[in-house]
Amino acid sequence: MLVSEKNALTIEIEDLTKSFGDQRESLLPILQEIQLKHGHISDFAQQEIARLLDIHPVEVYGVVTFYSFLSTEPKGRLIVRLCQTITCDLAGKEAIANTLEKELQIKFGETTPDKKFTLEYCNCIGMCDQGPAMLINEQVFTKLTPSKVIEILKKFN
């Protein structure tokens, strides 16, 4: 990481601690903002957050690895999260998963080489009456069929 990048990140985190407060309670909101903006929470960001909140870096790391929407590794700009829980599973998740893997040419847990898409499973997203369902970043897509998936992915291309 370049020094200038580090400095910019430090300023960004300092601003976040100003708006959310520099108490431990602000940890998740700060992590969520960094995750949203940078797609991951880098080693340096974790240490800066620890410094500004006066906690240990390993505590930040412990929190980041606990929550599945936070990550230490860079991810794609678009995170496709296919619901794997029961009703979506019964409604045909498998076919959707196959379609996604073939269309994006990656396996679940991977990111496309152009860093555009990351493909993941997630647990119930509360769209059980309209399964199979998935999230692309914050957008919800329901009643998926393989052909519908292809249409959706096209829109993002």
Binding site: Q23, R24, L28, S68
Partner: peptide
């Protein structure tokens, strides 16, 4: 941030506390 257990009230409070 994607953790089912945070629906348990005391885990939720822990999460609120960071």
């Amino acid at each position: 941030s994607g953790a089912y257990v945070c629906g348990e009230e005391s885990a939720l409070i822990e999460s609120l506390e960071g």
